[in-house]
Every structure is written in structure tokens, then in C-alpha cells.
Simulated scan of single mutants.
Amino acid sequence: MNNIIRKNPATMPAPVGEYSHVTIIPKNSTLYTFSGQIGVDHEGNIPERHTQQVVNTFKNIERALKSEHLTAENIIKVNVWSVDAINWNHFYEVWSNFFDVNPSMTIAYITALGLPEIKIEIEILAAAPE
């Protein structure tokens, strides 16, 4: 059973997106940090379109989680870096197909990522109560 608590305190403004202001991890949980994932496919190709990179990035996040026997419910924090404007309708469509819960999240627009063809990178932190 996942005992991670996500909440938006009444003393704060409502989130402007699909995230929680506060995430509480129970004692004796294992913390997992994952490298930022990019939109590369299984063959090593990076698509030109930002929207396809978003889809591939979430697929790679799912693979990373499965490698540790975790699911999206275990994600406690998401950091998103994008060099292009994010198509929010598309992003949240992909997001809602992936998440049943809304972890804490930070989004930043930056000028460049590790390779010129990379348009978005998403890093996650996860926890699994013992």
C-alpha cells in the first residue's frame, strides 16, 4: 500500500496545474532518484516534434519505474525542463494517461539541454514505503 500523502493546503493558492503543493513521505521509505529522461525511443532516435518527445519521455519514465517495481503512484516530485513552449493540452493529456495522482512539480523553460535535438527533459523522484 502506498502511504504517500499529497495535498494542497487551504492556506495556499490553488495549484495552477496538475500538481500538489505538498508531498509527505512516510518514515522508513526508500527514496529513489532517477536521471532526467528525454524523448529518445528504443532505437536511440530523438524525434523532431516536441509533442512526440513528451510521449517518449513518459514511456522512458515508466520503464525506469518498472525496473524498480514502482508505478507512477510512487513519484513524489517531477522536474520538467523544456527549451520550447509546452503544448499544455497535449502535455496534460499524456500526463493524465500516466498519473492517477498529482505529485509535486517544477517546470522551467531553459535555453538548451544536453544535446541540441533534445527539447524536453523530465526528472522524477520516487518513494516506496516499506
Score class of each variant (00 low, 15 high):
130 E>R: 15
114 G>I: 06
31 L>N: 13
128 A>Y: 04
8 N>D: 10
108 A>K: 15
121 E>V: 01
97 N>A: 03
86 I>V: 10
30 T>C: 12
106 T>V: 11
122 I>T: 04
78 V>D: 02
123 E>Y: 00
63 R>E: 00
92 Y>D: 04
77 K>M: 09
121 E>K: 08
45 N>F: 13
124 I>T: 10
110 I>Y: 01
86 I>L: 10
95 W>H: 11
118 I>H: 02
94 V>N: 01
90 H>S: 06
23 T>K: 02
2 N>R: 05
126 A>S: 14
61 I>D: 00
44 G>D: 08
7 K>T: 12
36 G>S: 15
121 E>P: 01
48 E>A: 14
62 E>K: 15
4 I>E: 07
36 G>T: 07
129 P>Y: 11
72 A>H: 11
39 G>R: 04
35 S>M: 07
99 F>K: 02
85 A>L: 06
67 S>N: 12
4 I>S: 09
49 R>V: 04
77 K>R: 10
87 N>L: 08
26 P>Q: 09
124 I>H: 02
33 T>M: 13
1 M>F: 01
3 N>F: 12
102 N>M: 05
31 L>M: 15
34 F>Q: 10
48 E>C: 07
2 N>M: 08
88 W>Y: 10
109 Y>I: 09
98 F>P: 07
82 S>E: 04
116 P>A: 10
5 I>R: 15
110 I>S: 03
4 I>D: 08
107 I>N: 03
20 S>G: 04
121 E>I: 02
25 I>Q: 01
82 S>A: 14
127 A>M: 09
58 F>S: 01
105 M>D: 03
58 F>W: 11
1 M>S: 07
34 F>S: 08
2 N>E: 10
33 T>E: 11
45 N>S: 14
71 T>C: 05
88 W>S: 07
48 E>F: 13
103 P>Q: 07
65 L>R: 03
70 L>V: 05
95 W>V: 00
57 T>R: 03
45 N>W: 12
116 P>Q: 10
116 P>T: 12
6 R>L: 10
10 A>G: 08
43 E>S: 15
40 V>H: 01
39 G>V: 05
122 I>E: 00
125 L>D: 08
71 T>P: 09
67 S>Q: 13
85 A>K: 15
98 F>G: 03
20 S>K: 02
77 K>C: 05
69 H>A: 11
43 E>N: 15
75 I>P: 06
19 Y>W: 12
17 G>V: 06
45 N>P: 03
41 D>V: 06
3 N>D: 10
98 F>E: 04
81 W>D: 02
104 S>F: 08
10 A>S: 13
109 Y>M: 11
112 A>D: 11
24 I>A: 09
32 Y>Q: 11
122 I>S: 00
62 E>W: 00
69 H>N: 15
122 I>F: 02
127 A>P: 09
96 S>A: 05
81 W>E: 04
